[in-house]
C-alpha cells in the first residue's frame, strides 16, 4: 500500500533543500543537481518524488501519465494534490514520456507565469544526444545529454521558445538528480 511509504522525514528542511536545488538549476539551466536525501517511492524516482513534494499541493493541479498513476494515493496523502482534468489544464505534469509541448498550457501574454511546469522522469541525465543550451542564467553555452527525450525534441522546444514569454518549463529527473530547462533557454544540437 502506497500510504506506508513515507514522504520527507524532515519536511521543512528537506523541502527547503530540494527547492534551493530546483532554484539553482532553474537559474543555471542544465546544471545537474543532486539531492542529499532520498524519498524512495517507485514508480517515482527519488528526484521526481522530492520535486513533487516540494512544489505541488492542493492549490495547483497535477497530471500524471499512466506509468506513474500508482503514485496518486501517495501524492494525495503527502501533498493533498488535486488531479487536473486533462493535460491542457494542468499546472504541473509529471510524466515518463514528454507529451507534445503544444498540448500543454503555455500561459497567456499578460500572465505567462501560468504556463505549466513539466516534471519529466528520464532514464539518465547523460549518455543521450547532446543538446547545447544558450540563454539567461548561462555565462557560456553548456552541453547536456539526457536520455529519454523524443526525437523531435529540439524542434518542439524551438516552438516552445518562440512563444516566449509564454511557454512551458521543464525539469528532467533521473535517480536522485535533476536539471531544469526553463522556457527562456534556446537549445541547439551537439
Amino acid at each position: 500500500m502506497t500510504l506506508e511509504k513515507p514522504g520527507f522525514i524532515d519536511p521543512v528542511a528537506e523541502a527547503q533543500a530540494c527547492f534551493r536545488l530546483v532554484l539553482r538549476t532553474m537559474s543555471s539551466p542544465g546544471q545537474i543537481v543532486t539531492l542529499a536525501t532520498d524519498v524512495a517511492t517507485p514508480p517515482l524516482a527519488p528526484a521526481t518524488a522530492a520535486v513533487l513534494l516540494t512544489l505541488v499541493d492542493a492549490e495547483v493541479s497535477l497530471w500524471l501519465d499512466e506509468p506513474l498513476a500508482d503514485s496518486w494515493d501517495w501524492l494525495a496523502f503527502h501533498a493533498g494534490v488535486v488531479r487536473a482534468a486533462d493535460i491542457g489544464t494542468a499546472a504541473f505534469l509529471c510524466t515518463t514520456a514528454l507529451p507534445p509541448l503544444a498540448d500543454v498550457f503555455a500561459g497567456t501574454d499578460d500572465a505567462p507565469e501560468t504556463g505549466a511546469t513539466i516534471i519529466l522522469q528520464v532514464p539518465a541525465l547523460d549518455g543521450g544526444p547532446k543538446l547545447t543550451l544558450y540563454g539567461p542564467g548561462l555565462e557560456t553555452p553548456i552541453v547536456i545529454a539526457p536520455q529519454g527525450l523524443p526525437a523531435d525534441f529540439i524542434a518542439q522546444w524551438e516552438q516552445n521558445h518562440r512563444l516566449f514569454p509564454r511557454g512551458v518549463d521543464l525539469l528532467l529527473c533521473a535517480g536522485s538528480s535533476f536539471c531544469a530547462l526553463p522556457r527562456s533557454v534556446r537549445i541547439g544540437e551537439g
Binding site: A15, E113, G137, P165, D169, S184
Partner: peptide, 14 residues
Amino acid sequence: KRMIRRAILKAVAI
C-alpha cells in the same frame, strides 16, 4: 512557502 517558491521559479523562467 510553496506558493512563494512556485512564484519565484516562474519569475526566474521569465
